[in-house]
């Protein structure tokens, strides 16, 4: 296994009281990457105490079921902390993955970032 540097997988920006997260990876597939992405996402809630998190999937072309698992855990963590998770800007092919798995019913999903920001 090629060991990859522990680089940042997320670009995090605060817009008002919302933490907007963009993914640096176009493909969220590798177990290692997914593990790192999960850790970095969870630390936003567990360590930084963020309550409103918006995930922007604009860069993402591929997403596996292991990545969906991390999103579910993040959603649970935010709910437990009295916060909220919203997803936006999901490519139609990837949105289909959410539809197939019916996770489009679990997550709050908006097309555009602007509309998503206003939904908090």
């Amino acid at each position: 296994m090629t060991s990859q540097p522990r680089r940042r997988r997320l670009e995090v920006e605060d817009i008002g009281d919302v933490t907007v997260v963009n993914f640096t990876d176009r493909k969220i597939l590798d177990e290692q990457n997914i593990q790192l992405i999960g850790e970095q996402l969870f630390s936003l809630v567990d360590e930084a105490g963020r309550k409103k998190v918006l995930l922007n999937f604009g860069n993402v072309e591929y997403l596996s079921s292991a990545a969906l698992g991390k999103l579910i855990t993040l959603n649970k963590k935010l709910q437990a902390a009295g916060g909220r998770l919203i997803l936006c800007n999901i490519d139609p092919q990837i949105y289909e993955v959410f539809e197939i798995t019916k996770l489009n019913k679990l997550f709050n999903i908006h097309k555009e970032e602007q509309a998503a920001l206003q939904a908090f």
């Binding site: 079921s65 698992g69 579910i72 197939i100």
Partner: peptide, 15 residues
Amino acid sequence: NLERCCGRGLMLMRH
């Protein structure tokens, strides 16, 4: 099961 971790991979393969 919606919030459980497993089973989605197989489901995506079948889809």
